[in-house]
Amino acid sequence: MKTNATDPAFDRQLAEAAAIAAVMRQRREAQARRGRLLKHAFLIAASCVMLYPLFWLLSASVKPENEIFTSLSLWPTVFQFDNYTKGWNALPMSFSVFYINSAIVTGLSVIGNLLSCSFAAYAFARLRFNGRNFFFALMMLTLMIPYHVVLIPQYVEFLKLGWVNTYLPLIVPKFLASDVFFVFLMIQFFRQLPRELDEAAEIDGCSPFKIYWRIILPLSLPAMGTAAIFSFIWIWEDFLGPLIYLNDIKTFTVPLALRLFVDSQGESAFGQMFAMSVTSLVPVIIFFVLFQKLIIRGIATTGMK
């Protein structure tokens, strides 16, 4: 059987086309390489600006107390590494206690946040019910009130419940979708998924819960990853809630403990405070690195049409 491949004219054409394509590819690649190089140059320069505070913090964490404010140099005259060991045990409780407390509060809160906020977001974004717009507007309003004026009524409320000096005021609201930021964030992502998905599933007899669990959540991994990262960071770093609700130093979280180092009008231990600040960044960075994979993995799963 005669095939095109044996036709010399066609072969020539094919070769020419291939050659042109190759040249073009080479050009494109060269261009892309140049672009990448430029990008990297820009990003590395920008990284230096972004990393400066970290270097500053690292340097301050090993400086002697009387040098932090008197010398602008990033290089300490003496490296005082015992800021770390001393700082860890400088307070009435060792920092291990504060870390465990923070892990409990943050861990439970993040789970609560992701579950309850995605529930509410699913309702607002994909289900129809009477009063949806009304409740959405109400929810957005709660985001707008300055926190400091609800602080006291809220404190009185939790006091009546007998929750003050426990972790409940910090954790329970997270299971009740109190962080409207995340509800709204998830709504925006959920609404971007094609409607045919639920319709098809509904025809197949899927319950709303099944649609939420099997279709919406898996397709929203970038959004969930983002939400996980933010909740972790914000709750880990939250200071005002623990300040108001925790009295006993045994129950303090890391950010609250960090504030015990500094007395703006008296004796402070800045070096140790900075050293402990550095350690408190470690869990956050680890969590960030782990969960940002979810954001990337998004491509593979949402690449469908």
């Binding site: 009435p92 602080l151 006291i152 404190y155 300040l243 108001i244 009295n247 006993d248 130093i249 609250l256 504030r259 015990l260 500094v262 007395d263 703006s264 009008q265 008296g266």
Partner: peptide, 16 residues
């Protein structure tokens, strides 16, 4: 039961 915090935060918590 000893309870402590830095100067600035002290008065916020105290008021609450």
């Amino acid at each position: 039961s000893g309870e402590t915090i830095g100067w600035k935060d002290y008065w916020t918590k105290m008021a609450t």
